[in-house]
């Protein structure tokens, strides 16, 4: 019964939102109301998830679980971020500078790693996946755009090259459009399945 209740709730919620969207000119206020509810629920869910994370790591520290030192670091970092923001406000320049001084290098180093990873992947691509239409077309398009973005020469002076390059630059549109249609179809299918109750999250 509990599962059915969740299914019914999900299906009803989706149906109501769809109906309100279709009849938005007359039901705009109700649509805003429902969306506000969803926002509140999502926000509370975030708080619950954060609380769960903290409680879990506090428990790890309390029981002395292996690697609890990382839990200690997590709790400390959380408090060091949360408490100043709470007392000084999120618009305080000192607070913003301190946060960004930590966060920016961390994320940038992660992104920098991607370049190395991509390079390694380029070497292994054919060894792992072999020769196929997909891998060959992937390699050709990668080489083409890498070469175009080198910026070694200006091709705009030559009409033929310019037209050719324009055609190449439009190539991604074809693939992206096909992929987007496929993904949209999949999303539509998932949405329908949620609406008719075939997708249950809490089973």
């Amino acid at each position: 019964m509990r599962q059915r209740l969740a299914l019914i709730t999900a299906a009803l919620s989706g149906s109501v939102v769809l109906l309100l969207l279709f009849f938005q000119p007359v039901a705009g206020a109700y649509l805003a109301l429902v969306l506000n509810w969803a926002i509140i629920v999502a926000s509370v869910a975030l708080l619950v998830a954060i609380a769960s994370l903290l409680v879990t790591h506090i428990r790890f520290i309390a029981v002395g679980r292996r690697g609890f030192i990382y839990s200690f670091v997590l709790i400390t970092a959380f408090l060091a971020t949360f408490l100043p923001g709470l007392f000084k406000g999120v618009e305080d320049p000192g607070y913003l500078g301190w946060i960004s001084a930590i966060q920016k290098p961390l994320e940038l180093s992660l992104l920098g790693l991607i370049a190395l990873v991509m390079m390694s992947a380029a070497v292994k691509l054919f060894r792992v996946r072999g020769w196929s239409v997909l891998t060959v077309s992937f390699a050709i398009s990668a080489l083409l755009f890498l070469f175009l973005n080198l910026g070694l020469s200006d091709w705009s002076g030559n009409q033929i090259f310019s037209t050719l390059i324009d055609a190449f630059l439009r190539l991604p549109v074809i693939g992206a459009r096909g992929l987007l249609i496929g993904v949209a179809l999949g999303a539509l299918l998932v949405g329908f399945r949620v609406l008719i109750g075939q997708e249950s999250d809490n089973e």
Binding site: L31, L35, I39
Partner: peptide, 20 residues
């Protein structure tokens, strides 16, 4: 609320009975 917040601002209307 992220995209829900944007959607609410775009498609929602101010209710007559109060503020959201």
């Amino acid at each position: 609320g992220g995209k829900l917040g944007f959607l609410s601002l775009a498609a929602g209307a101010q209710p007559e009975w109060g503020s959201l």
